[in-house]
Each structure stands twice: as structure tokens, then as C-alpha cells.
């Protein structure tokens, strides 16, 4: 038993403390989080744009025109992105589309942003369509434009209904960034691979990063549920408790 403990302690020291490996782990963690956050921003912007185009096209009576073309482009985008593996998209972005760029952070955030935009677009579109049509009719009948109605009335309500799905997408995005080592980025997964290469140890580094991912996901889940509660402040929750 004693022996087992000292082995564990040795492994731990070798994996995390020797040659200041914890510093490399922290910088890897920074890379992982940075890619996730930037990609999320790109993804949300793309997702909202695509969702608005797709849902306003669906509601329009006369098809065709500029909106029809935009709708086709959005459809192709979603189909292609959802139909190919993330790692393949990342490799294509790095070795083909942006082959001249050495800025791997840019390549990674763009790839992940474009990827998650396609998934978010469908989630957001579902949320927009779930908002009662009477809501946008009420907005329009007051004289608000289509864009104002979307911005102030429909999208805030849509976000409330899709928040759990958005949380899922964020978690998936975070975990998927673990493949960025294929384009040579030093995220926490790459850190674990490196440590294993140096120390011939697998247990500590890999279980270590698994724990790191798990903790971040738990924190994110908690944050999402706090936001959910905050957005539910339309008085209905209070009413139910009577």
C-alpha cells in the first residue's frame, strides 16, 4: 500500500511538477479556452445570421430573389459543414485554404467557428420558429421593422428556449478542440501527449487532462443553468410557486 502511494506521488511529481510542466499545462489550458471562446463568438454571429436568413425565407410567401440566393448559400454551408468531420475541416483549412498562413490560432478559431456556426444556425432557427407567430405580429403591428422585431422581441425569447441546447453546443465545442494538435497547436491534449513522450507515463497526464476537461464542463453547465434561471424572470416561475 505504502509502495503504491509513493509510486503515485512520484508519477504525479514527474508529470506535473518536474521541469515546470504545470506551466506548460496552464498555457495549454489557455489555448484550449481561447479557441473555444473565439470560435463560440464566430459561431454565434454566423449562426444568428444564417438562422435569420433561413427562417425569414421560410416565412416569405414570394420565393426567389436575393433572399432565395442567400438561403441556398446557407443551405449548402450547413449541409457541407455538418456532413464532414471536424478534423477533416481543420486539416483542409490549414493545409489547403489557408496554407500560406502560419497563424494556427487564426486557422483553428475560424475552423471551429465556422463548424459550430452551422450547428448553432439550426438550433437558433428552431428557437426562432418556436416563438409564437403572434409575437412578431404584435411587434410589426406597432410599426417596428422586421429587424427591430427580431432583435427586441423574437430573438430574446428564442434564446431563452434554446439555452440548454446552446450549452450543449458549447460543451461539445470545448471538447472538440482537443484535435487541434493535428495542426501543431499546444493545447492541453498536446501537453499530455508530450508528457507521455518524455516520461513514458500515460496514467497521470491523460487522467489529468480528462479531469481538467471535466471540471471546465461542470463549471460551464453550472453557468448555463444560472443563466437559465436569470432569463426565466418573466414572473411565471413566481406564479407557479403559489
Amino acid at each position: 500500500m505504502q509502495e503504491w502511494f509513493s509510486k503515485i506521488a512520484f508519477d504525479f511529481r514527474q508529470s506535473f511538477i518536474d521541469s515546470d510542466r504545470w506551466q506548460a499545462l496552464l498555457s495549454g489550458l489557455g489555448t484550449t479556452l481561447l479557441i473555444t471562446v473565439l470560435a463560440l463568438v464566430i459561431g454565434v454571429v454566423l449562426g444568428v445570421l444564417v438562422a435569420v436568413v433561413r427562417s425569414s425565407y421560410d416565412q416569405k410567401k414570394k420565393k426567389g430573389g436575393v433572399l432565395g440566393l442567400l438561403n441556398k448559400i446557407c443551405y449548402v454551408y450547413i449541409t457541407v459543414i455538418r456532413g464532414t468531420p471536424m478534423m477533416v475541416q481543420l486539416l483542409i483549412m490549414y493545409f489547403v485554404i489557408m496554407a500560406s498562413s502560419t497563424n494556427t490560432m487564426l486557422v483553428a478559431t475560424l475552423s471551429f467557428g465556422i463548424n459550430s456556426g452551422a450547428y448553432l444556425a439550426e438550433i437558433i432557427r428552431g428557437g426562432i420558429m418556436a416563438v409564437d407567430r403572434g409575437q412578431s405580429e404584435a411587434g410589426r403591428s406597432l410599426g417596428l421593422s422586421y429587424v427591430q422585431t427580431m432583435r427586441f422581441i423574437v430573438i430574446p425569447q428564442a434564446i431563452k428556449t434554446i439555452l440548454p441546447a446552446l450549452g450543449n453546443e458549447l460543451i461539445a465545442l470545448l471538447k472538440e478542440t482537443s484535435i487541434v494538435n493535428v495542426i501543431g497547436m499546444k493545447d492541453i491534449t498536446k501537453w499530455a501527449i508530450n508528457v507521455q513522450g518524455r516520461t513514458y507515463q500515460a496514467f497521470m497526464p491523460f487522467l489529468g487532462i480528462a479531469a481538467v476537461y471535466l471540471v471546465i464542463v461542470i463549471i460551464l453547465t453550472k453557468l448555463v443553468s444560472i443563466m437559465e434561471r436569470r432569463l426565466a424572470n418573466d414572473g411565471t416561475a413566481k406564479k407557479r410557486s403559489h
Partner: peptide, 8 residues
Amino acid sequence: QHFNLFPN
């Protein structure tokens, strides 16, 4: 008929 107040 269904008011359509903005619930948020």
C-alpha cells in the same frame, strides 16, 4: 385575440 404581450 391572444393579447400577444411580450412575456419577457
